[in-house]
């Protein structure tokens, strides 16, 4: 089954390696997608993982949130 795409918001100083270390073994940071800056001190990584990653990812002072990537349609 294809992994699910997630958006994980971290503090701006968090590197891809540090985020990878915080993830469970069945989730990986998508290095082909450069992180997208958000606000003054955050950024968003694309993470590939299981469909329930939002329930298992532990949020910390540096890993701030996880959000789904939902399909859309052209109207």
């Amino acid at each position: 089954m294809n992994p699910t795409k997630w958006l994980v918001t971290t503090r701006a100083h968090v590197t891809a390696e540090e985020l990878q270390a915080a993830l469970s073994p069945n989730a990986t940071v998508d290095r082909s997608e450069p992180p997208i800056p958000l606000g003054e001190d955050e950024k968003v990584y694309v993470v590939l993982g299981p469909a329930d990653l939002d329930r298992s990812l532990a949020l910390t002072a540096d890993v701030l949130g996880i959000s789904p990537v939902s399909p859309m349609t052209l109207w």
Partner: peptide
Amino acid sequence: GYYGIPTRAQQPRHEVWDINHP
């Protein structure tokens, strides 16, 4: 835009429910 809405219980962080989605 989105063409379907999961329930809030199913996906509380879905774009249609979470104003702080990136």
